[in-house]
């Protein structure tokens, strides 16, 4: 059994940033950024490279000091106190492992730093290695691990003390789809789900849609927009891109789609039997399209809704802010 969480989520925001400014020389990394994440929620930061995502996470982790403004974790000011470090698990950019240690040695070292006794450490390491498909018995040193394996080890490290707050900078980068799914299920599913508050930065819009309760689109150190992905799509996207694969694509399939309602940008790719269109309201349009195609004898292999409109909202917001100083 692990020791109980040092601080259980209260009613106030677990993560809070108030009007934070940070510059590196003449480059403004954060420009009055504020955000709040309530207990048990997953908050996604999405934005292009250099938008300020990693700087935000590093300030919250206590690795950078803001020029102005403050960061709080469960109401405690981030001043690198032991209390804030105990409730935090931070995965920042690169895995950063001690290459000459084995997996067991590395995780045991951090488990001891996080005050787990030998028995607790052994059990926790075993469980996490099982979850992340790591061979805890391996004598191979970490320097020989692949990038994906290293990322898994870093993930195991930040979960060792079962922290109530997780800061994750591109957490699934380099992981294979199966492990990505497992990690997602572990972090976001199960009985402990509401015990954890997570701030996640990602380039992957699909991942943001899947895991985040709320999303902020960040650019040039400022939050351009935030809300659930449904809200963002409603506010900024005119439709979703739908991609269908059929057993055999025919020319007249485009007409059938057109007749189904508010669709635009229909594209056929006969070589791949691929049909794509943009729908203003997929929930309304897709059943009609599918019914019409099926009635005409088309055999549909798969239907995908790309980015669920978030990619469109994202592009519009980023492109719209390009002209601003």
């Amino acid at each position: 059994m692990l020791p109980p969480l040092p601080l259980l989520p209260g009613t106030g925001p677990m993560i809070r940033i108030e009007d934070v400014h940070k510059s590196f020389g003449t480059v403004k990394a954060l420009d009055g950024l504020s955000l709040e994440v309530p207990p048990g929620k997953v908050f996604g930061l999405i934005g292009p490279n250099g938008a300020g995502k990693t700087t935000t996470i590093r300030i919250l982790a206590g690795l950078l000091r803001p020029d102005e403004g403050r960061a709080f974790l469960n109401g405690l000011g981030q001043d690198r106190s032991i209390e804030t470090r105990r409730i935090l698990g931070a995965l920042i950019e690169q895995p950063g492992l001690y290459g000459k240690l084995t997996l067991q040695e590395y995780l045991t070292f951090f488990a001891r730093l996080y005050d787990l006794d030998r028995g607790q450490a052994r059990k926790r390491i075993q469980d996490l290695c099982e979850l992340l498909d790591l061979n805890v018995q391996t004598r191979e040193r970490l320097q020989g691990f692949s990038l994906g394996m290293k990322q898994k080890v870093a993930l195991a490290r930040i979960l060792l003390h079962d922290p109530p707050i997780l800061l994750l900078d591109e957490p699934t980068a380099g992981l294979d789809p199966l492990i990505t799914k497992k990690v997602r299920e572990h972090l976001l599913g199960g009985k402990d789900r509401k015990r954890k508050t997570i701030l996640i930065s990602t380039h992957n819009l699909d991942e943001a849609i899947r895991v985040c309760d709320e999303i902020a689109i960040i650019h040039k150190g400022r939050i351009l927009e935030k809300g659930s992905w449904e809200e963002l799509r409603e506010r900024h996207a005119s439709g979703c891109r739908v991609v269908m694969y059929l057993r055999e694509l025919r020319e007249d399939h485009a007409d059938l789609v057109k007749e189904s309602g508010a669709v635009s940008e229909i594209a056929l790719d006969p070589d791949r039997n691929r049909l794509a269109y943009t729908a203003a309201d997929v929930a309304e349009t897709n059943p009609l399209v599918i019914a019409r195609l099926a009635a005409a004898g088309a055999r549909i292999v798969s239907v995908e809704v790309e980015g669920a409109g978030l990619d469109q909202a994202y592009s519009r917001l980023i492109e719209g802010s390009e002209g601003t100083p």
Binding site: R80, R85, A90, I92, L97, F110, L113, Y114
Partner: peptide, 14 residues
Amino acid sequence: ERNTLEPLLTAPVT
């Protein structure tokens, strides 16, 4: 240089 300092600085070590 090896990016190993950050995990150490975020661990509960005074």
